[in-house]
Amino acid sequence: MTQARIFLVDLLNFSFWSDVDIADTGDPHPDRYRVTFGGASYTGYWSMVAAINRALEEGIPLTTPEFFASETSLPDEEIKRIFRSDTIEQIPLLNDRIRIIREAGKVLVEKFGGSFINCIAQAQGSSLALVNIITSNFSSFRDEAAFCGRKVQINKRAQILVADLWACFQNQGYGEFHDIDEITMFADYRVPQTLYHFQCLQYSQELLDILDRGELLPNGSPVEVEIRGNSIWAVELIRKRIQELIRKEQELSSSEEPLKMQAVNAILIDFFIWDFAKAAQQDLARGQRSVKVHRTRSVFY
C-alpha cells in the first residue's frame, strides 16, 4: 500500500457505526451500509476501503490530491457514486467526507507540492512532529476538546495515520520514526468497551444507563472526553505493566544469552485490543461483563 493510499484511507477513517444497527449484536443489520468488491461484501471500516479500491480499479485516480481537490475533475455527485451502498443506508457523514476530501487536496497542493510525502519528509523521522504537521494543516485531524478549563488533544486519526505508516512500511522508509513509542492508543468506541470488559475501566451507573438507552454522547462533552481520556491512560498503564513483566522475564532467564523480547508500545496494544473487540463483538455486547459502545457521531473517530 502506498503512502498516498494510506493517507486517503485514514483521511476518511471515521464514524462507521450504523443508525440501523443499534442492537450492537455483532451481526450487521441487512440494511447497514455495505459495499461489495472483488466478490466479497464489506461493512464498517472495510466498506470504505472497498469503495476506494473499487474506484481505483475503475481507473479513478482517487489518491491524487490535484484530482480530488477539484470539483471540476471530481464533482460531488461522482464522490457520492464512488461511496455508493448496496443497501438502503448510505455511508455516514457523506457531506463531511466530501468537504474533508476537498480541504485535504487543496492543502496538499498549496502547501506540500501535491504530495503527502512532503509532510513525512518535513517531520524528519519524528512521529510526534508528523502528528503536529497533520493536525496543524488538516482541520479534520484536529481532535481537540475543552475539559475542566483545559485543552485536551486526543488526535486519534492523526496518530493512527502515523501508526499505519509505521506498520505498513515496517519502520522503514516512509514509516521510519525514532519516537514511535510516544504515540498513544487510538481512542474510539470499541477499545473502551473492551477495557471495561477486562475491568481496566469502571463506568458509573449513570453512564451505564445512558449507554443502555443508546443515547448519543456529543463530541467534546465531559463524559465522552472522560471515556476516551481514561482509555488512553488505561492502555499506558497496561504498556508499563507489560514492560515490567518483560524486564522480570529477562532478569529471571537462566540462559547465557538474555531473552530477546520485542518492545511493546501503545500501537501494538491498541491493534490487539481492537482485533479482539471485533472478534468478540457478541460476547462484549451480551456477556456477563458487557457494555454497549458509546455512540458519538463525529469526524474525529
Rank of each mutant, 00 (worst) to 15 (best):
V162I: 14
A145W: 00
Q153P: 06
A163H: 07
Q153D: 13
F169W: 11
N132M: 09
W166D: 09
N155F: 14
N171S: 14
S115K: 11
E182P: 02
W166N: 13
L130F: 10
I210G: 05
Q202R: 15
Y196A: 03
E182C: 12
F141M: 04
F186N: 01
T194L: 13
D164H: 08
Q172K: 14
K151M: 14
L211F: 05
R150C: 14
A158G: 10
L207I: 13
F198V: 14
P192R: 04
T194Q: 10
S127N: 00
A129H: 11
F169N: 03
D212T: 09
T135H: 06
G173S: 09
S140T: 12
F141R: 00
Y196K: 00
I180K: 09
F141V: 01
V131N: 03
Q159V: 08
V162M: 06
R190A: 11
D143L: 01
K156S: 05
L161S: 05
Q124P: 06
D143W: 04
G149K: 06
L130A: 04
E206G: 03
D179H: 01
V191K: 01
S140C: 15
L165M: 14
G114A: 07
P192W: 07
I117F: 09
C168G: 07
D209L: 12
C148H: 15
F186M: 01
C148A: 14
P192T: 04
A121R: 15
E176F: 10
F116D: 13
S139M: 10
Q172E: 14
D188S: 01
R190F: 09
T194M: 11
S140G: 10
